[in-house]
């Protein structure tokens, strides 16, 4: 039985190597309807091999480490927090956007696919129960009334954690931002390793005690979409505060030194096609960059931010490592 399985595995991998393959590197949150991908394979005549490389930050580093022998032909999921780093390392091929309508968001040197916002979510039931007013500024979160209520992700190990830190730096200014983080630490902020840990073990909506969590602006809509009984209203809401909203734009690009250039460009165009743009909102919970795409009605239940504090990708590339180590010093290291 073992031999058979081994033999099968060997055969399939040998067969797979013969057909023309397009290697697509993505982060672990990538999801798209199977029929769409199958349709693309049929149309282009190549087999799409999706390779998931962990969180987006991890993925970019894997791409940089293997630049001498690229592990993929196309990369999807690099966003404005990582673009500068990827470009400085020279792992991306300048990629042309498909001709056609203007899109809502762009990424210099890459083809934008979707966008979203990292922001604070709050547990509506918790605030109603405690009869506590919602904070109206980041500063209020450092007051005694909001002690031990916030959980954030570590920017050194989590993409939304990093995005939120960047928003505070841009929104409050560098020095005031770190002073604010110091006060937030004194007010009992909890730091989780990643989004899943924060959302499912610390957020009061699930297992934890903290009614405010760093998450995405579409999360309330997803809560309704994935609820058990039909909800008329989202159980969580967005807390859109000055300095607490980051706009994330994700894109796709060809990998420098990768093969299958033509198919790769076709794949780029495919991600911008109407069908994919309509599919991705409820798959990856991001907004499509193509205007005029009809969204699932649940998106109306999540307030879309109208303002955000997002540093440009060049500033992020130059300074984010320094900001993260300063954040670690202020929030995690002080007192040791």
């Amino acid at each position: 039985m073992f031999k058979k399985v081994l033999w099968l595995a060997l055969c399939t991998s040998a067969l797979g190597a013969q057909a023309a393959e397009l290697r697509v590197l993505t982060h672990s949150s990538f999801a798209l309807s199977k029929e769409l991908l199958a349709g693309f394979e049929q149309q282009s005549g190549v087999k799409v091999v999706v390779i998931k490389a962990g969180d987006a930050g991890e993925m970019v580093n894997k791409l940089i480490l293997t630049r001498a022998n690229p592990i993929a032909d196309v990369v999807y999921g690099i966003d404005n927090t990582l673009l500068g780093k990827a470009q400085q390392a020279g792992v991306l091929e300048p990629t042309a956007s498909p001709a056609g309508a203007a899109v809502k968001q762009t990424l210099p040197g890459m083809v934008s696919v979707d966008y979203g916002y990292v922001t604070l979510n709050y547990d509506k039931a918790w605030f109603a129960r405690q009869k506590l007013a919602l904070p109206t500024s980041l500063d209020e979160l450092t007051r005694p009334a909001y002690k031990n209520l916030v959980v954030v992700e570590n920017p050194a190990t989590s993409s939304p954690g990093l995005a939120f830190l960047l928003a505070t730096v841009k929104g409050l200014g560098e020095e005031p931002a770190f002073a604010w983080w110091g006060k937030l630490r004194d007010n009992g902020v909890k730091v989780a390793k990643g989004w899943s840990e924060a959302y499912y073990t610390d957020f009061s909506k699930n297992g934890g005690s903290r009614p405010i969590v760093v998450s995405y602006a579409t999360s309330p809509a997803a809560e309704v979409f994935y609820s058990k009984e039909k909800l008329a209203e989202a159980p969580t809401g967005n807390l859109l505060l000055k300095g607490g909203v980051f706009q994330q734009v994700e894109g796709v690009a060809l990998v420098k030194g990768g093969g299958q250039k033509q198919a790769a460009q076709q794949f780029v165009d495919f991600l911008r096609s109407g069908a994919v743009q309509a599919d991705l909102p409820t798959q990856m919970w991001m907004y499509p960059v193509l205007p005029g795409v009809k969204l699932n009605p649940v998106f109306a239940l999540a307030q879309q931010p109208t303002a955000h504090d997002t540093p440009d990708s060049r500033a992020i590339a130059a300074k984010s490592a320094g900001w993260v180590s300063r954040w670690t010093r202020v929030v995690l290291k002080s007192g040791y």
Partner: peptide
């Protein structure tokens, strides 16, 4: 590195916990 077609029970569990919602 992993591929979607190699998803195991454990990775599927992590995928589910990567999204919000009771379901």
């Amino acid at each position: 590195l992993s591929r979607p077609e190699w998803t195991t029970l454990t990775t599927l569990i992590y995928q589910r916990l990567g999204r919000p919602g009771a379901a």
